[in-house]
Design a protein around this nucleic acid. Sequence first.
DNA 1: AATCGCCTAGTCCCGATGAACTATTGCTGC
DNA 2: GCAGCAATAGTTCATCGGGACTAGGCGATT
Lengths: 217, 217
Amino acid sequence: MKIVVCDDHLLLLEALGLALSSKGHEVVGLASTPEEGVAAVAEHHPDVCLLDVNFPDGTSISAIHQIREASPQTKVVMLSAEADHGIVGRSIAEGAAGYVGKEKPIVEIVEMLDRAVRGQLAVEPSLLQRALRPQKSATDDPLWSLQFLTDREWQVMRCIMDGQTTEEMASTLGVQRSTARTHVQNLLTKLGVHSRLQAAALISAHGTPETWPAHLR
Amino acid sequence: MKIVVCDDHLLLLEALGLALSSKGHEVVGLASTPEEGVAAVAEHHPDVCLLDVNFPDGTSISAIHQIREASPQTKVVMLSAEADHGIVGRSIAEGAAGYVGKEKPIVEIVEMLDRAVRGQLAVEPSLLQRALRPQKSATDDPLWSLQFLTDREWQVMRCIMDGQTTEEMASTLGVQRSTARTHVQNLLTKLGVHSRLQAAALISAHGTPETWPAHLR
DNA sequence: AATCGCCTAGTCCCGATGAACTATTGCTGC
DNA sequence: GCAGCAATAGTTCATCGGGACTAGGCGATT
């Protein structure tokens, strides 16, 4: 697995490089700025890029886009300190394939990278659960989920998990096919999956009763 | 909902007719033999036909085929006494859309008929669970499930519930796409559903840990 | 030995689905 | 009023998925 790591903490950067190498992976680039990171990805086209979310002024987010443009097959996995976990939802929405905390052991990080390259959403269940749960209370950090799924999208999710087709869904929701299609599309994008089935699998694997908005349960 | 009922117990037949009528459904035919039942279906093209499984010499099974041929949109729901529950799997495999026991209250039977016309598999969870569980022990009645799903099909089911596409499935199973397609096809037919998603919904709704063959859990 | 069931593999057809867009409406908060 | 967002609706295109088939090889049961 070819990997580029991009983080401004040089100590962590080098340590991660060594650790990943020792696990049998090929670390083809170590970058300390988003620019270097994007350049390294463009040059080496790695399988996955570990990218710090902590770069200032949203440069991490724009780096996601640049990386995906420069090397579409490269999966971007966000790397974050605990204090920054708030943007897990945002990261995925912007095109990241995964999100891991710096406090996690190397083995778990490698596992998440594996998931990412297999095309699966690579988010620790604990974070995913929280990200999936809509934040209704004003005291909750809205960045946590950005209302990860809207009410309508949760309803669409229900239809999907009932095995309904687009048409059935449209009639149960009382909208046009095209609208139902759009909702499904947005849903898939937000969950970072590529089929309704994967979306259903994701929710049934990580979902708890509390995952669902109370008024839709 | 237009209904034809076919059962050789005249008392039950008429009682069912009255009961269904009182529930607001249109009973367009009451038949006491498979022949009459098929004829009634051919004439009225009902939404659903309640058919006794207890007719001799497999005439119930052949009646399923005749009904589906004469009126493809008509759903066949098998009606059985407790002693005959053994062929629930067979019934579905032969094209029935559902299976209800005569001991059930009218409301449940109506609910199952509703499920059937909505295109869902109409089998009581308790029976379904037993039908889904492969019978490994020789003391179990083999007719119960007819090895409802084969080992390979359970593996395919796993892949489906993991959200894999046909191609991914083929590679994890080490076979050609076409083979994986065939397994999926057989699986859908056996479960009486029309999409992978519905199959996944079915198993996750009715499946228990014991539903899965021990060596594949 | 013959049959049956399972696994394997393939074909054709068509509708459903997912990707990638644009665009309008209406609500909400600034 | 204006910006942002959700919901609505639409288009085009390529691919996937499901239905309906056929068929060979292989092991087990009869």
